[in-house]
Design a protein around this nucleic acid. Structure first.
Length: 278
DNA sequence: CGTGTTTGACCAGCGC
DNA sequence: GCGCTGGTCAAACACG
């Protein structure tokens, strides 16, 4: 009886240690995410300064959208919510989205409405590739391909092709489709504008990464984007549209909670995750 | 009934 | 020409 109690105590101690370690790991993840948010906020600040410069220039009678050598998209002309700008066909934009590992749908919420027109299993990836056309405007030429990452099934890769000829809608909880497929509550992890077939860079994947890895990869990705010349403008636009999205913080928090700890620990995480309110 | 998804068939490009 | 592969079409079906 005493021995049994002793063994139970040992098991409890082990569980406590495990939970402590898990808590420590979650805190480290939390710190990493804070760092990411700081980076995003700094970019937001930069963009706000940029916007102010544009407004000043307009007040001074500058007629065009040109600021120096940078062409400013029309969305900065008004106070409208920034539109998700997509690249031309020459440089397909790839967005990596982490979804719930058990979720096998191929829906990426990006502010546009898509109609699926085909699905194929490709040679290099066992996961089927879904083909979507933008259905928000009848003549919109934009297409996208969505396929799960070969190495990490919880990441879906959305490849955009073409340029929208209309504005995006803001959808916080609606699906991209009206059909039977379930809604994936997800958010882009990393965008990458690819030239031809340069290796893909899966950014900000949360599972199984140490804090150092997260931070280094995050900084590398940001640095890479900063060095990306003209593409950086579009990346920043995208980042800006994300952080101005009132649901972004909540989506981020939810995705992090699900990814790191699973649904059971959501309440505990929410206590520690003091994300800035938008 | 309108809209969107599914899925097999079809087509074009490419290499051999 | 043939086979392989990726991309698209369109009829059938599902859903609200």
């Amino acid at each position: 009886m005493v021995v049994q109690l002793f063994n139970t105590a040992i098991i409890m101690d082990e569980k406590v240690e495990t939970l402590k370690a898990e808590l420590q790991r979650v805190r480290e993840e939390n710190n990493t995410l804070r760092l990411m948010l700081e980076v995003l906020n700094s970019k937001c600040t930069k963009l706000e300064i940029h916007l102010q410069e544009i407004n000043k220039a307009q007040h001074k009678g500058m007629s065009s959208n040109q600021i120096g050598s940078v062409t400013v998209p029309p969305m900065f002309d008004t106070n409208k919510r920034p539109r998700l700008e997509l690249p031309t066909a020459k440089k397909p934009l790839q967005i990596f989205v982490r979804t719930h590992p058990k979720d096998d749908s191929l829906i990426v919420k990006d502010g546009y409405q898509w109609r699926k027109y085909g699905q194929k299993v490709t040679k290099d990836n066992a996961s089927p590739r879904a083909y979507f056309r933008c259905s928000m405007a009848p003549m919109c030429p934009v297409k996208k391909k969505v396929q799960r990452c070969l190495h990490d099934k919880s990441i879906v890769v959305a490849t955009y092709d073409g340029e929208h000829n209309h504005a995006a809608i803001h959808e916080s909880s609606s699906s991209t489709s009206k059909g039977s497929s379930p809604v994936v509550n997800n958010l882009p992890l990393m965008t990458s504008i690819l030239n031809d077939k340069e290796p893909m860079n899966i950014g900000l994947a949360l599972s199984g990464w140490s804090q150092t890895d997260h931070r280094r990869h995050c900084e590398d990705a940001m640095q890479q984007n900063n060095n990306n010349g003209g593409s950086n403008i579009r990346i920043e636009e995208y980042v800006s549209s994300l952080i101005k999205n009132p649901d972004f913080s909540m989506s981020l928090a939810e995705a992090v909670v699900r990814t790191i700890t699973g649904q059971q620990k959501q309440q505990d995480i929410n206590l520690n995750l003091d994300l800035p309110e938008e």
